[in-house]
Simulated scan of single mutants.
Amino acid sequence: MKQKEIIWKEISILNCSANAYPSGKPYKKQMLQGKVFPTTKEQAIAFVSMGCLLGILNSEDVKVVEKVLNKHGLKGEYKYVCCKQYVKLINNSMLDISLKKEYVF
C-alpha cells in the first residue's frame, strides 16, 4: 500500500525507526538493528553497503522516508505489522536508490 492508503491508529510526533544520528556519533550497531535513518554521505554509504533495512515505522518515520523517496521521483510501498499499529517498508531497494542519488555515490 502507498503512504496515503495507510490508516494510522495513532499519529506519532517522535520517530520510531527513522532516527537521525549526528555525524561522528557511533551509529552502525543501531543501523544494523533498523533504528537509524542515514543523514550524511558516510552513513548512507554504510546503510547501503551493509544491506541495512529500517525496522517498523510509525507515521513520523513514513514522512521521513517518503520525503527522500519523493525527492527522487520514487514512492514507498508498505505493509502493516504489529496489529496494524506500524508499517514496514517493503520496497527497500527504492530507498537504496534514492540514498545513492541523494548523496551521489
Rank of each mutant, 00 (worst) to 15 (best):
K2D: 11
K2I: 11
Q3Y: 15
E5Q: 09
I7N: 12
K9I: 11
K9P: 07
E10C: 08
E10H: 13
E10Q: 14
S12C: 04
I13N: 13
I13T: 14
I13V: 14
S17E: 05
A20H: 07
A20F: 15
Y21G: 00
S23L: 15
G24Y: 13
P26D: 13
Y27W: 09
K28M: 15
K29T: 10
Q30V: 00
Q30R: 06
M31T: 02
L32Q: 15
Q33L: 14
G34I: 07
K35W: 02
V36Y: 03
F37Q: 09
F37A: 05
T39N: 13
T39P: 02
T40Q: 10
T40W: 06
A44L: 04
I45L: 08
A46Y: 09
F47I: 02
V48C: 07
M50P: 00
C52D: 09
C52F: 13
L53A: 06
L53W: 09
L57W: 07
S59W: 11
E60T: 01
E60I: 00
E60F: 01
D61C: 02
D61H: 03
V62G: 05
V62Q: 00
K63G: 06
K63A: 07
E66V: 04
K67H: 08
H72W: 15
G73W: 04
G73K: 15
K75G: 07
C82A: 03
C82F: 08
C83L: 01
C83T: 01
K84F: 07
Q85K: 15
Y86Q: 03
Y86M: 05
V87H: 06
K88E: 15
L89S: 04
N91T: 05
S93I: 11
M94A: 15
L95H: 10
I97K: 15
I97S: 07
I97L: 13
I97D: 11
L99I: 07
L99M: 12
K100A: 10
K101E: 13
E102T: 10
Y103N: 08
V104C: 01
V104N: 09
